[in-house]
Nucleic acid binder design. Sequence first.
DNA 1: TATGAATGAGTATTCATTCAT
DNA 2: GATGAATGAATACTCATTCAT
Lengths: 209, 209, 209, 209
Amino acid sequence: MAPRRATTTSKLSQRGSRAQARQREIIDAAAAVFSEKGYHGSSTRDIADRVGMQQGSLYYHFPSKDAALAEVCRVGVEGFVAGLETIIADEQPAEAKIRAAFANHLKGLHDRRDYIRTFLFSRHNLPRDLRQEISRLSRLYESRLEALLLSLQADGAVRNDLDCRLAVLGFLGMCNAAAASHRPDPKIPLDAYVESFATLFLSGVMLKS
Amino acid sequence: MAPRRATTTSKLSQRGSRAQARQREIIDAAAAVFSEKGYHGSSTRDIADRVGMQQGSLYYHFPSKDAALAEVCRVGVEGFVAGLETIIADEQPAEAKIRAAFANHLKGLHDRRDYIRTFLFSRHNLPRDLRQEISRLSRLYESRLEALLLSLQADGAVRNDLDCRLAVLGFLGMCNAAAASHRPDPKIPLDAYVESFATLFLSGVMLKS
Amino acid sequence: MAPRRATTTSKLSQRGSRAQARQREIIDAAAAVFSEKGYHGSSTRDIADRVGMQQGSLYYHFPSKDAALAEVCRVGVEGFVAGLETIIADEQPAEAKIRAAFANHLKGLHDRRDYIRTFLFSRHNLPRDLRQEISRLSRLYESRLEALLLSLQADGAVRNDLDCRLAVLGFLGMCNAAAASHRPDPKIPLDAYVESFATLFLSGVMLKS
Amino acid sequence: MAPRRATTTSKLSQRGSRAQARQREIIDAAAAVFSEKGYHGSSTRDIADRVGMQQGSLYYHFPSKDAALAEVCRVGVEGFVAGLETIIADEQPAEAKIRAAFANHLKGLHDRRDYIRTFLFSRHNLPRDLRQEISRLSRLYESRLEALLLSLQADGAVRNDLDCRLAVLGFLGMCNAAAASHRPDPKIPLDAYVESFATLFLSGVMLKS
DNA sequence: TATGAATGAGTATTCATTCAT
DNA sequence: GATGAATGAATACTCATTCAT
């Protein structure tokens, strides 16, 4: 139904495409398992079983469980920024931009659900150095979102008294809440989430007085 | 500075108040440890160390690590409902009610931070039966919130086209995002969060046209 | 037949004597296993089996395999110095002192064979910091031996052209060679080794011309 | 500076000299690695890395890690006997023969340091059958040394009361002690060791009375 | 109430070895 | 001759839990 596949390259192994494919299988499996049971709740055996591999064989492809977690988180976050940049660059009215930002985020959540759940719930378990690289990426995303709001505010499209930093927190919190539940409600289509969250964010809850 | 203490009674041990006090010490410690390292990342030794006790001695007070987790989650969620009921019952204009709901939630987050972080990030690790009891509580909270919105909608104070279920998701996501970071930003006072989130939720981001 | 038991106290746990006794059982077992198969060739299971314990239970008494190795080495070396000091202090003719030094060393080798074989063959496997503590002890022993030879040389009892440092190397090499074989030759009594090695060291191989 | 190279042929692969050269590279690497970390402390990857080869590729040249160890030990011990035979055969005074024996042994230790350290410290790890072949070689060396001493004793050049078996043990222990330290003291030249050990062995430590 | 000691199952990781290509 | 990928068994160490004292 949904792609749920990593698309970007990282520094992990520039070997043949056969090897790359196997690696993608493995982080896909890791993402699924981490997403379901959390980092410490997942064993390397769980991951190996899912790939149909022997536990120890994973270590031919990944140096450690940590490294697999880092890669999953990286892939999870990475996708957000690229989409957002295009939105910022495009010529659109303010409202359309914000709606597009919601669509971008919720689409990512849908396509890379396991990756992003892992980022949201398990990034704490990364060792300091790896965690910092991931934090850098996610702070980049946040700062681009804030920049978007600030520019719209400068244009007079957004309320002057809005604390854009907290608004970004609200934006992300609202969206990510949709990823918190273990299985998403399949009766609610993606568009409905986008429509509702974007409108809520744009116009609030109260009737215009 | 902040209370961060459990206040409600549960079915766990109706023994003397001396015993109760010791138990509270222990779930306080458990909450702190779970909040910091997650359920599987925390060992019973971590908890015992924090109480100044021997690992095995915990089992005099708690039947299992699971049970401690359940108790922490229970205490974390429980507090929300009581406050909300008062707000619903009080005679106030719509906007004030919603602001009060934000204050209630964010105050809880502040006072029982470790408990609620544990609920947010570690409740998945509960065995099915215990998890269901906790889910019942949190769904109760959600449905009371939804009921509040629906009643305001019926009164004509809230937009007619608002999907109140998704709005509750947005409300909670926004608030809980503030608990996601390991250490809260101490430069931003609680009131600022309440003010910002409530206004965002009520009036949205766009300038009234 | 022979004691083969640790006699000195170390910093490892000053707990009840019950605990101390159990610890001694464990390093005794570790010494035996390390002596037979080398450090890396010995598994913690081997040790546990020998004590009649579960593998993981060892870790209640020792923090790591390394630490057990260090303790075995420490006990092995430690005994040598004390005996030598008495010999140096005693009033005796040069020849008697050197014979006593041989007796002291070979007796140690006999009584703590497993400990000393472990020191001789497995100390390389210690992590740097632990290794240095052990090295300090063994260098102390060597320097006391050298001091003994130097003082006898100053008294005119020992050849003036003797390189005392190399002589110590020879002394130790000769003695320790007796520990190199897996099982000592039971037909040769301890006294015969002492007599032969001491005479060899004192008078050499050639007929007085 | 020093050769440190295997020179003798074994039964391992009578293939082309290209193959032989590669094999020699590999046991050279194995000797170096075993010498530094011991048999169980060395992985086949360590060896492969040192040759610049893939782990599994070693198995084209050697049937097993055991076999490589056996070959290293064999090469290490083998060299000693040949040199000693020449010394025994030559017409020389007793003292010169013994000095030559020391020179022979210490020269071997210098030229094939890694091989001999491996023999000294890791031969225990050989499986029984391979170990016996190596033991045969080293016992041959010991018995030739003992024969030398016995013949000199028969000639009246060596003390009549000397236990020649133990003297051989002393000879070897003294020499091999020089190989025990991880890195030899570079300030002491080979000749100095030979001179000192030989004199010590010949004349002992005491002043002639 | 609490401790000290132990258990037994689990966990990440390593490693000698194999084999199709 | 050599590689890349995999296996299966072992290994040090952790941990929730139990229980006699």
